[in-house]
């Protein structure tokens, strides 16, 4: 299975007055798993369907191994797609479903059924191969769908929210399994999801989309720690929004004077965006700036919710070891552990 490069070159798509995609630009390296993450309606599914050839594009092109495939019809693209749910053919059993793509490629019956059997084994369903879709659970159905998409040895694997209809437990297991298979087969993969945990946990890179645009594409690590825009910052992970005053690139927040990361805002009232784990809470009777409301024990860490004097609610995540004394009602001092902070409009 040779890995392929997939390039999405400035594709745009409108549905009536709605701009679904606005000059989307992504390059996926061979064997890479890239997730498109965004709220519903951001255009991520449209992008995936355009790559699959199931939707047309108004402008721009899709390149596979450098060759323009924009005009190639979906059934000649050799891309394996896994849909959200209910995509298995109800009149075929699991094995026949998996073998369908090979049947369309004129592979002899014996060979294609054998290959389908192998793939079902790969997804742990070799004992269910004669079952029909309605006899399988939701998770099993999606495994069969994954095997079916992989059976044709696709140039690119396309995953359209394949886990969203499943229970939490099944979802987590299948997520890891998708990654394991993808890594061992080395298939270039585009994965669309609205669940950030899903995207962050198994992807090489994550593209965050909003209103048909790509806000940022980067490794999960970078996305979390160095969000390029305030949308990415607030969409990925939790962010506290603390009141601050901006003066010439410096922001005063919680009594600290920090560098502002985005400086195109006018001086005056702003919000500083700070991750919960970057806020330290200490007991302080002399110069307190907040009061503990609740403390929830999460195991190794604890979540402390505090209220500032102006009513702002602040969330902090710290080791349980250091938070033992922070009981509700306690007056405390909040501190930001960074020297630079991202700022946003009031």
């Amino acid at each position: 299975m040779s890995s392929a490069t997939l390039e999405i070159n400035g594709i745009s798509r409108r549905f009536g007055d709605v701009v679904a995609l606005n000059k989307l630009e992504i390059k996926i390296e061979p064997g890479e798993l890239v997730a498109l993450l965004g709220p519903s309606g951001c255009g991520k599914t449209t992008a995936l369907r355009i790559v699959a050839g199931l939707e047309s594009t108004d402008s721009g092109s899709v390149l596979l191994r450098g060759a323009d495939i924009t005009k190639v019809s979906a059934n000649h693209r050799n891309m394996g797609m896994v849909f959200q749910a209910y995509s298995l053919f109800p009149n075929l059993n699991a094995q026949e479903n998996v073998a369908f793509g090979l049947q369309m490629r004129k592979v002899a019956k014996g060979n294609r059924l054998a290959k389908a059997g192998e793939l079902l084994e790969l997804v742990g369903l070799n004992t269910q191969s004669k079952r029909f879709p309605h006899q399988l659970s939701g998770g099993q159905q999606q495994r069969v769908a994954l095997a079916r998409a992989l059976a044709v040895e696709p140039d690119v694997l396309l995953l359209d929210e394949p886990l969203s209809a499943l229970d939490a437990q099944v979802r987590a297991n299948l997520r890891e399994e998708i990654r394991r298979l993808q890594l061992s087969l080395g298939t270039t993969t585009l994965f669309v999801t609205h669940d950030q945990e899903e995207a962050m946990s198994i992807s090489d890179r994550v593209g965050v989309m909003n209103h048909g645009r790509l806000e940022q594409i980067a490794s999960p690590d970078t996305l979390y720690n160095k969000p390029a825009t305030t949308f990415v910052a607030s969409f990925v992970g939790l962010m506290n929004r603390l009141p601050g005053i901006l003066t010439n690139g410096k922001v005063e927040v919680l009594g600290q004077n920090l560098s502002a990361l985005s400086s195109d805002l006018a001086n005056g009232q702003v919000k500083a965006l700070v991750r919960p784990e970057r806020i330290n809470v200490t007991q302080d009777q002399s110069t307190p700036n907040a009061r503990v409301i609740t403390r929830s024990f999460l195991g190794a860490s604890s979540r402390i919710i505090c209220e500032m004097h102006d009513g702002t609610i602040v969330q902090s995540l710290m080791t349980s070891h250091g938070s033992g004394m922070l009981n509700p009602g306690e007056t405390v001092k909040l501190e930001i552990a960074d020297l630079e902070v991202l700022i946003a409009h009031e």
Binding site: A52, A74, N75, M81, F83
Partner: peptide
Amino acid sequence: IRKEWRDASQNLGAT
């Protein structure tokens, strides 16, 4: 007859 079945068949190479 679900739209997903047409899409899936097309994606798998069916006319």
